[in-house]
């Protein structure tokens, strides 16, 4: 009897502890859940559908304006890049132009194909006009650079005949003359050897020998000194 009672007592006790623990668990879970749920609903208190819609609209507007800004900046960037490219192009063109001018005016030594003429004037018959004729003939045939006895012939070159010789820009040169012209060698050659042309005219003079040869690699020096224009100034273009 006592044993049974004891057993019953133990049984009750274990059950009670179990129930107590479970109840504690229920209480804990309940309270914790209530707390968490409340803090969550406080976090997003006023976020009704309308509010969310408002927020989305605002964000959309902001995104749109940012997108516009991006587009504007892209356009600006593109413009700057193009300007930069234009500047480069202009600079390149200017450099190319300058180079051309330096060649034309004889400021740089040049090399290339062309013709070389040996003109021997034993009797001193050749005058400055003869030389000018020859130069003109070469220029007509497209000579880009000409030299006589190592002196560059430019737009400012002047010929004079003095004391049985020729003067170029104030310095004397003597026969035999070596004339070099850079340009299309075939055209230059044909321009000079043309029937009744400059070779025939000059070669027919007594004591004058005229030899011309096509050369694939001629070199012509620059003019001795640069000429600073004192009076001529460029006309400003509007």
């Amino acid at each position: 009897m006592g044993d049974i009672f004891h057993l019953h007592h133990v049984q009750i006790k274990r059950t009670e502890i179990t129930i107590g623990i479970i109840c504690a668990l229920v209480g804990f879970l309940l309270v914790n859940q209530l707390r968490v749920q409340r803090s969550l609903s406080q976090q997003l208190p006023a976020l009704t559908e309308q509010n969310l819609g408002q927020i989305i609209r605002e964000l959309n507007v902001e995104a749109e304006s940012l997108q516009r800004e991006v587009t504007d900046l892209r356009i600006k960037l593109y413009r700057y890049e193009r300007e930069e490219a234009d500047k480069k192009t202009i600079l390149n063109e200017a450099a190319q132009k300058l180079e051309n001018l330096r060649i034309v005016t004889g400021l740089v030594g040049v090399e290339g194909q062309g013709v070389q003429i040996q003109l021997d004037d034993k009797k001193g018959l050749l005058g400055s006009y003869d030389m000018l004729d020859l130069i003109q003939e070469l220029r007509t045939a497209g000579a880009e650079a000409i030299s006589i006895n190592g002196r560059r012939v430019t737009a400012r070159t002047a010929f004079r005949r003095r004391r049985g010789g020729l003067w170029i820009n104030g310095s004397a040169i003597n026969s035999p003359y070596e004339i070099r012209a850079i340009g299309d060698s075939e055209t230059l050659y044909q321009g000079v050897v043309l029937a009744g042309g400059i070779r025939d005219v000059l070669g027919s003079l007594g004591g004058v020998s005229f030899e011309i040869a096509k050369v694939s690699d001629l070199s012509i020096p620059a003019i001795g000194r640069e000429i600073q224009p004192l009076y001529a100034t460029p006309i400003e273009e509007e």
């Binding site: 109840c23 504690a24 229920v26 879970l29 707390r35």
Partner: peptide, 26 residues
Amino acid sequence: LVPLLGLMAGVLLGFVLKIPIPAAYV
């Protein structure tokens, strides 16, 4: 008696411990 005590203990524990639950699992 025991269930009530357990319940109170649990409630008290819930107020004291404050175990956070991720929003996704609430």
